[in-house]
Design a protein around this nucleic acid. Structure first.
Length: 316
DNA sequence: TCGATTTGACCGAT
DNA sequence: ATCGGTCAAATCGA
């Protein structure tokens, strides 16, 4: 059993530690991407463990569970599996999900029962956020073994601009107070890319208690993989006008970076998981989330991303 | 009147 | 054959 340790200099503050962790995770994810493409499963597993460690540490820092003296969280590896980090807290299940999905990535050539073929990402949230795009609901279905129906949305600019972004929203089985939004595809519609969600302005001008007490910091992921990214991330998709009416100003999301870098505006108390087999340049350009939100980015060549979100008129 | 939502039908993937 | 995703007609509401 190999033990991976992630440590920071004792003099580092929270921001520095988190930035280091996220940058390291970015680097490792890029390495993993290349390794997986070359079919080196064992190396990929080791990298996956390090990535999990890095992101788990980040989550710990975000969740305020970090050790202020710069202690570490361990991630263990075994010969055949990517072991769980030893961190046991509210975000540990997030790490679990990360591991499962990383393993899916490693075994990406194994059969996937799911039909979804495009990359996706998901998010759980207790209420709605304005992601800067407009959506049109086009269907709702009762899903087998699910207590709550799933709603289907497409970008409002599907026909006028050929935007293929879609999302699905469903109440979380274990916690019906949460909505899981899964985004599929990237937005190619033009105006929505630069559209600043109203809630940003609300938040900036209003100054919620959260923001007053916690200074935000930004992390920039430069794309160093020479992959061109022509499309924005699906995170910045928006709700329909109907949805906007119930959007709470607790959430902020906006986009402002170039196509080759991503900026993240991250309040210290939020919980996020980033997973991607592709370069981090595909991640959302900048975002700020509610502390109860969880975002999971999954890319995949053959498996889905899920993402969660709130709002269905039928759920109100 | 027109755009958005609802909902049953249809169709493709598994 | 079943399930999940999309279509499209009917309906709603501003």
């Amino acid at each position: 059993m190999e033990s991976l340790e992630c440590t920071w200099p004792a003099s580092w503050n929270l921001q520095e530690k988190m930035k280091e962790e996220l940058v390291r995770g970015h680097e490792l994810a890029n390495q993993l991407h290349l390794v997986v493409r070359n079919g080196d499963g064992e190396t990929a597993k080791g990298l996956a463990a390090k990535i999990v460690c890095s992101f788990t540490n980040s989550l710990s820092l975000l969740g305020g569970n970090h050790d202020s003296k710069g202690k570490h969280i361990q991630a263990n590896t075994s010969s055949n599996t990517v072991a769980l980090p030893t961190l046991v807290d509210s975000s540990s299940w997030v790490a679990l999900e990360a591991i499962k999905r990383t393993e899916m990535l490693i075994n990406s050539r194994s059969s996937s029962k799911k039909r979804k073929t495009s990359h996706s990402w998901s998010r759980d949230a207790p209420d709605f956020i304005d992601d800067g795009h407009t959506w049109r609901k086009y269907g709702q279905k009762q899903i087998l073994n699910a207590s709550h129906p799933r709603s289907y949305f497409r970008c409002s600019h599907k026909y006028d601009q050929g935007c293929k972004a879609t999302k699905q929203v469903q109440k979380v089985e274990d916690d019906p107070s949460l909505f899981r939004t899964t985004y599929f595809g990237n937005h190619t519609c033009k105006h929505s890319i630069l559209k600043a969600p109203e809630s940003i302005l609300d938040n900036v001008s209003g100054g919620s208690p959260r923001e007053e007490s916690n200074s935000k910091f930004m992390i920039t992921f430069e794309n160093n993989n020479n992959f061109p990214y022509e499309q924005e991330h699906p995170f910045f998709s928006s709700y329909s006008s109907t949805e906007r009416e119930i959007i709470k100003s607790n959430h902020v999301a906006s986009s402002r970076s170039s196509s080759l870098s991503c900026d993240y505006l991250v309040p210290p108390d939020q919980v996020m998981v980033f997973e991607s087999s592709e370069p981090i340049g595909r991640l959302p350009t900048m975002m700020e989330l509610h502390s109860e939100d969880m975002i999971t980015f999954e890319n995949n060549n053959n498996f889905p991303y899920e993402h969660e979100h709130p709002f269905l008129s039928s759920y109100s």
